[in-house]
């Protein structure tokens, strides 16, 4: 969806931000580095990093951005658990966009890829 959104807005982004590359997260995305680090701190339950990044994002972008960003991260902490506990496959593996993104990010390294690739 990041790629789809960037195409819609004709914005150049670097998807390697998804894999944790800080410089890449900032390309085309305002506050990208700290948004990415916030997501990382929440999902990895790294409380030390979480406190640091929360303060940085608050100072850089303000409280409303922090709250909305935390909401999205909390939401996807749920979504990944729905997907994996129910073993759902990716809906459409044939779209050019999906194929390119999965390849660029090397997503097949994840164990849960089996829920799709072994179907």
């Amino acid at each position: 969806m990041l790629r789809a959104s960037s195409l819609t807005t004709e914005t150049e982004v670097d998807l390697q931000g998804i894999n944790g590359k800080q410089g890449a997260a900032s390309v085309g995305i305002e506050y990208g580095k700290n948004l990415m680090l916030l997501a990382e701190a929440i999902a990895s339950r790294n409380n030390e990093l979480l406190v640091q990044v929360r303060d940085k994002l608050l100072n850089e972008a303000g409280a409303k951005v922090l709250v909305d960003a935390v909401g999205v991260a909390a939401n996807f902490q749920r979504m990944v658990r729905i997907a994996d506990s129910m073993g759902i496959p990716v809906d459409d593996m044939e779209t050019d966009l999906g194929i390119a993104v999965r390849s660029e990010l090397n997503l097949s390294r994840f164990a849960s890829a089996a829920n799709t690739l072994q179907k």
Binding site: M1, I18, A25, E40, K64, D68, V72, V80, A83
Partner: peptide
């Protein structure tokens, strides 16, 4: 207060840390 690209960066990073293929 954040745009869709910002949302999707967060969503995708959370999913990647959780190793979610979907």
């Amino acid at each position: 207060s954040i745009n869709r690209m910002q949302m999707e960066l967060i969503a995708a990073r959370v999913s990647a840390i959780n190793e979610c293929f979907y």
